[in-house]
Design a protein around this nucleic acid. Structure first.
Lengths: 340, 340
DNA sequence: CAAAGAATTGGGAGCGCTCCCAGTTTTCCC
DNA sequence: GGGAAAACTGGGAGCGCTCCCAATTCTTTG
């Protein structure tokens, strides 16, 4: 069991003052090399780590970032999206010396109780918030507090002056559909995610844009909601089959898997009878049964980038607001038929 | 934008001293009702929240718990197990007023750099650590630091005096297999998880115990490693089929899904030709294609309980070490055939 | 060799809170 | 109504650190 030391005590052991030890700990230049070495030695021997509360109090900085998952999306926390995002964020935090504090709101009550503590207690230097429903009070509340924050994803209508990072869902969907069109498909169906969600909406727009750009008609019978679940994708595909699509673009890989399964059960060949393209490319590690062509979102880099942006905001203020949109990448595997 | 206030300033506004405001904020009894009300009013108006660094410095308590995912298991972070566990933990943290700090170690370097800061900086009141490989240095390091901690899961050989909570994998597996035996099955196969893992090992023991208790032979051909993945379960099942099992107990639901798929592809009926039982019951929300009989682990409650135990240790010390083992529950659905 | 300048070091003050103790006010009871 | 006890309140000290400024030591240079 290691005794907790103070700067003062370390100083005594090394025969210098509190201030000098502080300089050594904080890597400030004005210390004679020989003295620095002596102090470092004592620090090494004692395993001294400065008290973070005292440091925060003195510097008005905590070195802690918050990751806030609002109530309205906390139920999706099991989604691999969050796992990856969190991995990216922690990776970047570790690299930059930030600690990460996780706020998963389960109830209204949680939000009401925690939000003020979180935004006012000067416990956090900045916050990364997952985008939520437009009418969620979190973002307005965060704006009122003088706390730097960054939204990951977007709302349908984004308040003025808010920093965010997001993926270009419109162009991602466009790429997927254009790829199918280039392969000669004409009756391209779309399985959407839940449409209360900006990402789903954007992917739908991209789908329609691509059809329009290639003079293909939009057939509403070929657009079905799959609710972002595998079963939803399965059911949607069953509904789609009577309308004879020759390709399906699913707004998520999970739904694409459901679609593939439905096609298999219906005795259809992929990609010969029906081609399939998904969206996300988050599943690769879990699911290799199908070699799914998909649109890759760089979620890991996304998390890393979130930390970079928020720390930029912390250092330099939120003007102008940072608004970054990441590109997606078409990953061609086998379900689209391009590899035959 | 709300100005950050101090106790002193709130006191001035309410016409009382710093100390009285402190008493009100901390719900101490010795304040006249009328004064208390006046102070509360000012706090409400100003949205005052006490500075947490100052409070931590004075009380030597941070109100923050750490959740540590060691490097050797961080790659599994996408597993729904962690999502659920984290949900349970955050839920309990929110309820008890703790903040949660997440440490996901990605590299050796992360561990070496962060562990001392984490255990010595008096930044955390206590730590919940996911169990890891036996030779991982985290637990020994945590023992050396004077920081309360609790292990979730178990190592193969658990150091003396360490507190942990775990699920009774042996009896869970026993229940699953006994259920199959009671249904009249005799050639019961077992798809194991990765065997470098205590949980897999324990489930294997439970499987063997149940066979032994009912005088059934252990046939090594009926025991195959499925590596905790769906594909692993699929492959394992293909390897199993030549040995004609009449039932399969998979050590995780994911592997059970793989098994079901393999059986389907082989043209076998479930449960008539082969019965299947899984383990976990964590997938229900994602996957409803098969009504899988399984052994439920109460992971959510597990997370909640972790917070309770660690805060008990924080308050009352780690003697005697807390060691709790949670029971599992057999969930009978359709793949076992009990419902026919 | 002295004076000026640069490099290094030490110590006071203060960050905002809690805790303790010494007042001060109120209440109670004979 | 007076004294003791109870209830309440205020202010000093201190938590361990950083930041600033003054003091000291070491270099340089004319």
């Amino acid at each position: 069991m290691i005794k907790k030391m103070t700067l003062e005590e370390i100083g005594k052991l090394a025969g210098v003052s509190r201030s000098t030890v502080s300089r050594v700990v904080n890597r400030q230049p004005d210390v004679k090399a020989e003295v620095r070495e002596r102090v470092m030695e004592v620090i090494r021997e004692t395993g001294f780590v400065p008290n973070s509360a005292a440091r925060s109090l003195a510097t008005q900085r905590s070195g802690i970032l918050g990751l806030v998952i609002p109530r309205s999306v906390a139920t999706f926390f099991g989604d691999p999206y969050f796992a990856r995002l969190t991995q990216g964020i922690t990776q970047a935090c570790n690299a930059r010396g930030y600690m990460l504090s996780l706020f998963l709101f389960h109830s209204n009550n949680d939000e009401e109780l925690l939000l003020p503590r979180l935004s006012q207690g000067s416990f956090l230097d900045g916050v990364i918030v997952q985008a939520t429903r437009d009418d969620d009070p979190i973002i307005p509340q965060l704006m009122k507090a003088a706390l730097p924050f960054l939204v990951v994803g977007r709302l349908n209508t984004m308040p003025e002056g808010v920093s965010f990072i997001d993926v270009d869902n419109v162009s991602g969907a466009y790429k997927a559909v254009e790829h199918l069109i280039n392969l000669g498909h004409e009756r391209i169906a779309h399985i959407t995610g839940s449409l209360d969600n900006r990402a789903s909406l954007d992917r739908l727009i991209g789908y329609k844009n691509a059809l329009a750009a290639h003079n293909l008609p939009v057939d509403e019978n070929l657009i079905v909601d799959g609710a972002f679940t595998e079963d939803g994708g399965y059911e949607a595909t069953r509904d789609l089959l009577p309308h004879q699509p020759d390709a399906i673009f699913a707004a998520s890989d999970i739904m694409a898997i459901g679609a593939l399964r439905a096609l298999k059960d219906a005795g259809l060949q992929v990609p010969n009878d029906v081609a399939v393209v998904g969206f996300d490319d988050l599943l690769s590690s879990y699911q290799t049964e199908f070699a799914l062509t998909t649109i890759r979102q760089p979620i890991l880099r996304f998390g890393v980038s979130a930390v970079e942006v928020i720390s930029d905001i912390i250092e330099n203020g939120n003007t102008p607001p940072r608004q970054k949109i990441y590109d997606t990448e078409l990953i061609i595997r086998e379900t689209c038929g391009a590899r035959q």
